[in-house]
Design a protein around this nucleic acid. Structure first.
Lengths: 336, 336
DNA sequence: GGAACATATGGAAGCGTTTCGATGCCTGGA
DNA sequence: TCCAGGCATCGAAACGCTTCCATATGTTCC
């Protein structure tokens, strides 16, 4: 009757079993609805003991026995980028709904850090690693992961044996740029984020090229820069310093676009009258910039869904690529 | 010579020991550099075996034995808020430097979710929980945490027996508002984020009151709203709809300020000429809004440092409160 | 040359779970 | 009355690691 529990004492299953006068096996059966049935009266006694002792199972021990900690890992190049923050949060929520936690690692767009992050997650025995890699596909494929399943996101170049769930960047960029073309722009520049692997062309840039080519327009100026607000700012200044600056800019991320907005404002140019802007991502930040950004929204919810399904699937990893389509959110920065 | 390893096979310490012709104890000694010394030749043989087998220790097993998973947990009300994203990232980095990982949980400013997050982290046996709570102090104190250490952040009301590391919100708000007063503003409004616990006054609001009182100015209008960009937007529209809107606004977060900026722009008012704005947080977003926000920067690095020290300390939890001072970053939105 | 001592290594217990057999009891049918 | 068959429960092994204690060498000093 009297509730025991000494301050910070660790109550284990043994304590509960003793208190309820049963074996630890029975306690397990009750807690897990376990493989064996338990008489109703006994079960009630066990539950009573758990309550009285304030017992909480030790997830670490369970993980060791089960070979799974119900833990997922995710590695992103910049966890403070609002897109990744929103994505990570959405995935974490979906994971939590299935009893999994999500361990977030930030590679800071650095190859070595990403490798370390991977080793770390592997040794922590995560059940799967969700990876927005900055490494070339071959290296990703070669990496030692003790058979831990991986799911690639945010990337279009296929990697043998590893499933990829990604936004269709090319399609997204295409609709963004087409929208700008629809406004009559003929000279459309692009801001693209610099990658670790310079040989890998950004599919958004491809989409931009394609849209331009389809409309019979010449390729506008492309600026490669860091994937940050500051990067977008600097790149846009360079664009504006051109003898003949573009009349519209497609930014391959909200972050870049926000930097661009500042550069354009500072140059005392009007948006969208002097220069129109369309961005990519569709984070909340794009909704509150000035002017509000017309943006190509990545389907975060669907990505999270599909990624989780792939990460938790028990089937042999398929290794294909699944591209999710985007949606154009029309606001003010395009001239609508 | 020949490297073995079958596909996804789990290589354990036993395999390494067998391969190197030693006991598992020796393998441990080599890996951990302790507690017993190992002959140089033997150690080399073990390392060789580890390499050949691509052995990686199982952190879960280690955690069970050691009683610590080298895991910290953090619960924040909104992980996509750039301030918390930056803070979490900084703490994660500092933790990683000491061999700890950080598990992030998002309470969505919801009491019940926060409770669940706590239970979850406790059962995962984290070594400490860093908590930006939305609950009243008494409930936090009463919560069952199996003796797991907690550190409170982002909060000034003291809680018995739990150490608090927080920005000095009141001081920060004071210098922000004083700066506005220095610009000659007499009618300064404030945007404050709504809390779960309506009885707990926001210390930033106190700072604002104090600065005003010190200058002999009347209290301006205060708008309570959601802690989001949208919230800041709506609250500011209400402010602007007042018969006599304030000439300056102090926003108690960057998020709120960004929303405010949009509302002011939409009203075709000039910032800072018609309405000046000073925000609180100092995230990167404040640097790229238009105009750039003058802001009271929270000392994220120092917070991370102190929080980690408190979380990892082996001493009896002190239970005091440590307030860190802010710094005013002067940019354009204040009129400078 | 033998005892006392370092030094290097091995054996085994224990961390808190899960779950597989094994056991004991009770029921009902013959 | 006896036995087969079910049901409820228990005992113990296993998960991979750390570390205490013991043992087996080799060394040094009288």
């Amino acid at each position: 009757m009297a509730s025991m529990q000494i301050g910070s004492g660790k109550v284990t299953r043994t304590d509960v079993a003793r208190y309820a006068g049963v074996s630890t096996a029975v306690v397990s059966y009750v807690i897990n609805g376990g493989p064996k049935p338990v008489a109703a009266a006994t079960a009630e006694r066990v539950r009573e003991a758990i309550r009285a002792l304030q017992y909480q199972p030790n997830a670490t021990a369970r993980a060791l026995t089960m070979g799974s900690a119900r833990l997922l890992g995710i590695i992103v190049p910049d966890s403070t980028n609002p897109y990744f923050a929103e994505l990570t949060d959405t995935i974490a929520q979906a994971a939590a709904a299935r009893g999994y936690a999500l361990l977030t690692a930030n590679s800071r767009t650095d190859a070595e850090t990403e490798r370390q992050n991977t080793v770390n997650l592997v040794s922590r025995q995560v059940d799967a690693i969700i990876l927005a890699t900055v490494l070339p596909p071959s290296e990703v494929a070669a990496m030692q992961v003790q058979g831990i399943r991986r799911v690639l996101i945010d990337q279009s170049s296929i990697v043998h044996g590893i499933p990829i769930i990604s936004t269709d960047f090319e399609q997204g960029a295409t609709i963004g740029v087409k929208h700008l073309i629809g406004h009559g722009h003929q000279d459309i520049g692009i801001l693209v984020g610099r990658d670790i692997d310079p040989t890998r062309p950004d599919p958004r840039q491809n989409g931009w090229k394609k849209a331009l080519a389809d409309a019979g327009l010449p390729e506008g100026p492309a600026e490669l820069t860091d994937f940050t607000r500051q990067g977008g700012y600097e790149a846009t200044r360079r664009l504006l310093a051109l003898p003949k600056p573009p009349t519209a800019i497609f930014a391959s991320s909200d972050l870049l676009a926000v930097g661009a907005l500042r550069a354009i404002h500072e140059a005392n140019l009007s948006i969208p009258d002097d220069i129109a802007v369309v961005s990519f991502d569709g984070t909340s930040e794009s909704e509150f910039s000035w002017p509000q950004l017309t943006t190509v929204r990545q389907p975060i919810d669907r990505i999270a869904d599909r990624v989780l399904a792939a990460a938790l699937s028990t089937e042999e990893p398929a290794g294909g690529i699944e591209l999710l389509t985007t949606e154009l959110i029309v606001r003010r920065s395009c001239g609508c």
